[in-house]
Amino acid sequence: MGLLATAICVMLLLIAAGCKKETTGTPPLLELVQGATVISGDTSAGQGDSLCFRVRVVSGSDPVVLYKIFINGESYKDSTMSSPGFELTEHLLKGADTLEEIRFMVRDRYSREASVIVKVTLEGEVTWGPVVHYSGIMLGAQNQAAQGGFYSLQGNQVFTLAQAFGQQQLIDLLYYYEAGDENTIASPGANISSSIFTGPNGLDNWTLKRTTRFRTISLSAGDFSGCTNDSLLINSYGTSEGNRKAKNLTAGNYYSFLTQDQRYGIFRVVSVTGTDAGTIVIDLVTQQ
C-alpha cells in the first residue's frame, strides 16, 4: 500500500504543480509617470480638487489581470483584463478625509503583485455642496413610442433615441427592458445588447458613450426627500466602483450613482409599468 500511496501522491503533486507557478517568475511593474500636470508622489489638495495620475503598468512573466485603486484601504476602482501592460490617466477627486492614502495595485495571472502608494493631505475646510431634486421623471422603454427613454442631468431633460443620438455628450441615463435583467436603468457606455436600441441611431453607431455607475442602497423616504447637501450622495456611493446597470428595478428601489463627469446622485423608483414598451417613473437628487 505504501508504494501505491507514493504513486498517487506523485500524480497529485504533478496536478498541483499547475498551481505553483505563482511562486516563481517575474512580477509586473507599476509606476506613476512624472510630469508637470500629474501627481507622482505625496501631495496635498483641497476637498473636491481633481487629482490627476498617469499610471504605467508593464507585465512580468504573465499577463496582468487585475488593476485596482484603494483609497484608505477601501476599493475605489476595480478593473480586470488580460494585458501585457498599459498606460492610463486617472482623475480622482480629493475627499473630505484629512489624509487619504491612495494605493495603485496590479496583479498578474498568478497573483504576483506590484503597487504604489501616494498620500494626499487635505488643505482647508470640509464643505458640502448643494443638491437639486427632480421628481416624476418618466422614461420610456425601447419600444415606447410616446415617451423618450434617455435622460440628461444637465437641465433635467428627457430625449428620444433620435434626439439623444444628436446629444451624445449629454446623456447620463437610459431605460430599457430585457428578459432576465428586466427593467434596467443604465447609460450608453454599459455594453447594452445591440438588439435593444436598433436602427441608424442605435447605440452601436454612437461615437461617444458616457458611462454612469450604480450601487444599490437602503434608504428611507425621509432621508431621500430631506437630503439638502451632497454628503449623503457621496457617502452612500462609497469609494468602491459601482455596476454599469441597475437591473430588475421595482418600485421602492434606491440606487446611488456616479456619472462619467464625477457627478453624484441618488434615484428612487416610483413606479414601473409594462415591459419593452413600458415606462418607469423615478425621483432623483443630484449635485447641483
Binding site: 496536478i15 498541483a16 476595480d78 480586470t80 488580460s82 495571472r109 454599459a190 455594453n191 455596476n243 454599469r244
Partner: peptide, 21 residues
C-alpha cells in the same frame, strides 16, 4: 483509499461585462 484532486480554472465575463478569473 480513494483520493480525488480537482483543479479548476474558472474564466468568464459576467453579466456586468467584467472579466473574472
Amino acid at each position: 483509499s480513494l483520493m480525488e484532486s480537482t483543479f479548476t480554472v474558472d474564466e468568464k465575463v459576467n453579466n456586468q461585462d467584467a472579466y473574472k478569473l
